[in-house]
Design a binder for these strands. Structure first.
Lengths: 206, 206
DNA sequence: GTCTATAAAGCGATAGAC
DNA sequence: GTCTATCGCTTTATAGAC
C-alpha cells in the first residue's frame, strides 16, 4: 500500500521518526541506531529501505519539505475570512513561529539543512529550489499588499524577509529569543519593508 | 614565550588550524586527527594542550571571537575619514560580507555555533553575551544615525539587522547567494530600517 | 520485509618513550 | 613538549536466517 508520494507505510513511519530525531539531535546528530529505536524497527530495515545514511537524510528532508508545503498551503481554506493582503502575509510568516512539534521539527530541520549545506553542497540544489519557491510566495503576498511597488524592490524585500525569518527562527530555536519576541520582530520587519515599498523609493537602489 | 592572551605559539598554531578546519567542515565535522594533520602535530599534543575535544572547541571559538572583535574594532583607526553615522553602520555590517579566509572562518564558525546551540545549550550563555554585545553596538550606530528615534524602536531594529545579517550570511556561505547580492540586500535592509525610524512611527508597536 | 548477529571502520583518548 | 603506538567505544553497514 502506497500513498500519494509513493511511500509505503513502513517507510513513512521511519521518515516521521527521522523528523523527530533530527529535531532533537540535528542532521549531524542523527544515528541510525537512534532512528531505529525511535521508529521501532531494526537498523537493517532502515538500510534496506534507504540504502545508506545519506539516503535516509535525503528522503527525510524531502519528506519534511513536503509537510511544510502542506501546512503553509492550508492557510487558504482554514480559519479566518479573506483578510487584506498585508494580514495574509503576516499570518503566513508567523506560521513558522509556533511552539508545535511539527513546526519545530520543520524549522529545525530546515535550519539544519541550510547549515549543513555550508559544508556539503550535495543538497544545495534542493535547498535553492525550495528557498526560491518560498521567496516567490512571499513576494506575491508582498506585491499584493503594495500594488504600486516596482517588482525588483518587491523581490528584494521578500528575500530580506525570508532571511530575517530564518535568522529569528534560529534564535528562537536555540533559546536565545522568546517566541513572542521573535514574532514581534518579524511583524515589525514586515511593516518596515511595506512602509519602504509604499513610500515610492525603491529599497534596492539609490 | 607567550603572547598577550597567554597563548603559546604552538597552541596558537593549533587554534589557527582549528579555525581553518571548522570553516571547512564545521564544528561538528572537526576531527581531532584532521586538526592534527592541519596543524602539523600529533593528536596527542592536542590532548596535551587542550585536554579533550570540547576543550579544543571552547578555545577555538574564543580565539575566533577575539579575532572578530579585532577586525570589527579596527574600523576606527583604519581607512576612510570620520564619515556620517549611517555610512559607519553600513561599513560595519558589510565587514561580515568579504571573501577573505579570516572573515569566512569567523562567519562560518559563528553560524555553526548558533546552529549547534539549537541542540546543545552548553555554549548558549557565551553566544547570548556575544550576540547582545554585537546587537548593542549596532543599536548605538543606528541611534547615532537616527537621533530622534525612540530607544525601544532602535533596539528592535538592531535586533532585526543582526538577524538579517546572519540569515544573509548563511545563504552566502552555502553558495545560495552571490556575495554582491548579499551586500545589496544588507544595505537595503539598513535603509528600510533607518527610513522607518526616521518617519516617526515606531516599528515596534502599532 | 524484517530480524539478529557481527564485521569493518571511525574516532576520542591514553600510555609510555624520548 | 612532542611523538608513536594502541586501546576501546561508537557507528555504519552487511550477512544470513526467517
Amino acid at each position: 500500500m502506497r500513498d500519494a508520494t509513493g511511500t509505503t507505510e513502513r517507510r513513512r513511519a521511519i521518515l516521521e521518526g527521522a523528523a523527530r530525531v533530527i529535531a532533537r539531535r540535528g542532521v549531524r546528530g542523527l544515528r541510525v541506531a537512534d532512528l531505529a529505536a525511535e521508529a521501532g524497527v531494526s537498523t537493517a530495515l532502515i538500510y534496506y529501505h534507504f540504502k545508506d545514511r545519506p539516503g535516509v537524510l535525503r528522503h527525510a528532508l524531502a519528506f519534511i519539505g513536503d509537510r511544510a508545503d502542506r501546512y503553509t498551503a492550508t492557510g487558504d481554506e482554514a480559519a479566518a475570512p479573506p483578510a487584506d493582503p498585508r494580514e495574509l502575509l503576516e499570518r503566513t510568516l508567523l506560521l513558522e513561529f509556533q511552539d508545535l512539534p511539527e513546526v519545530r521539527e520543520n524549522s529545525t530541520a530546515w535550519g539544519e539543512l541550510r547549515a549543513h549545506t555550508v559544508f556539503d553542497p550535495e543538497l544545495r540544489a534542493e535547498l535553492a529550489a525550495a528557498g526560491a519557491a518560498w521567496a516567490a510566495e512571499v513576494a506575491d503576498l508582498l506585491g499584493a499588499a503594495c500594488p504600486g511597488a516596482p517588482a525588483p524592490a518587491v523581490t528584494g524585500a521578500a528575500e530580506r524577509l525570508t532571511a530575517l525569518l530564518e535568522g529569528l527562527s534560529v534564535r528562537w530555536l536555540s533559546g536565545l529569543l522568546p517566541l513572542w519576541h521573535a514574532r514581534d520582530l518579524m511583524l515589525a520587519g514586515v511593516r518596515a519593508e511595506i512602509a519602504q515599498l509604499g513610500s515610492g523609493h525603491s529599497a534596492e537602489f539609490d
